[in-house]
Structure formats: structure tokens, C-alpha cells
């Protein structure tokens, strides 16, 4: 895991690499029935579940806005802590939606499916 600590004009920031696992959740499933352009769906698909220890180390609290970034693109989401035993350190979960698409590489390696459950992304706290 790469950890870069440094200073910016706004203050101290932390950049780490995470393995992002997009997937389904029942809330994603129920809100998409209301409509994918509605607020409820947008909220679900912009919520990033993280290992609480990772969050503590990065000085993140629930609801903090973070930037996820990789070679494909970047997106902003809000984070939510999960018990360390429920989500392994160094991984994060997000319900499928437009934000996960921003980060998904299009190469399918000849099988038709992008590698969409094992995406390496940089996470960075957005300082307000």
C-alpha cells in the first residue's frame, strides 16, 4: 500500500491506494426503482464504504468528501466507515452507479467484461 504524506497549501493531506469493489446493495436496488435520475439513487451511488481503521488513519470521518482517482478518471464521493472485520483493510465498497463508471477501465481483455470488481484507485481527502 502506497501512503504519501505531505503538505499542501490547505494543510496536511493523505493519498493512499485502495482496491475498490463496486457491487449491488439492496438500497441501490430499491432506489433505482424510483428512478436513476432521482436524488435517492444518486446518494446511494456516491457513498463509499471503507474500513474504519483506514479511515481513522487517514483522519476521515463519516460523511467526509473524498476524491477517487486512477488512470481512467476521477470522481468525488462521501465515505462511510465499516467495522474492520467486515471489510478488509485496503479495500472499499461502492454501489454501482455513475461514480464507479468514472473509474472503470474499458479494456475487457478479450472477454467482454471490464475488470469492475477489483479496481485500484487513489483516495484523497478533499479539504474544504
Amino acid at each position: 500500500m502506497i501512503i504519501i504524506n505531505g503538505d499542501s497549501k490547505q494543510g496536511k493531506f493523505v493519498v493512499e491506494n485502495l482496491i475498490l469493489i463496486p457491487g449491488r446493495s439492496s438500497k441501490q436496488g430499491t432506489t433505482l426503482n424510483q428512478g436513476k435520475l432521482k436524488d435517492a439513487y444518486k446518494e446511494v451511488t456516491t457513498t463509499l464504504e471503507m474500513n474504519q481503521d483506514d479511515m481513522d488513519r487517514m483522519k476521515l470521518v463519516d460523511g467526509d468528501e473524498v476524491r477517487l482517482k486512477n488512470e481512467t478518471g476521477e470522481t468525488k464521493v462521501r465515505c462511510l466507515g465499516k467495522k474492520p472485520e467486515d471489510l478488509p483493510a485496503g479495500t472499499a465498497f461502492i454501489p454501482y452507479g455513475p461514480p464507479s463508471s468514472e473509474l472503470m477501465a474499458s479494456d475487457t481483455a478479450g472477454c467482454g467484461m471490464p475488470l469492475s470488481k477489483h479496481m485500484i484507485v487513489e483516495i484523497e481527502k478533499i479539504l474544504s
Binding site: G73, S101, S106, S116
Partner: peptide, 12 residues
């Protein structure tokens, strides 16, 4: 289907 909301960015 709604590929514009869940496909990779380049495809969208």
C-alpha cells in the same frame, strides 16, 4: 438497460 450509468467512462 442503462449503460450510460454503469459502463466504463470511455464506453459511455
Amino acid at each position: 438497460s442503462d449503460p450510460a450509468s454503469n459502463f466504463p467512462k470511455k464506453a459511455i
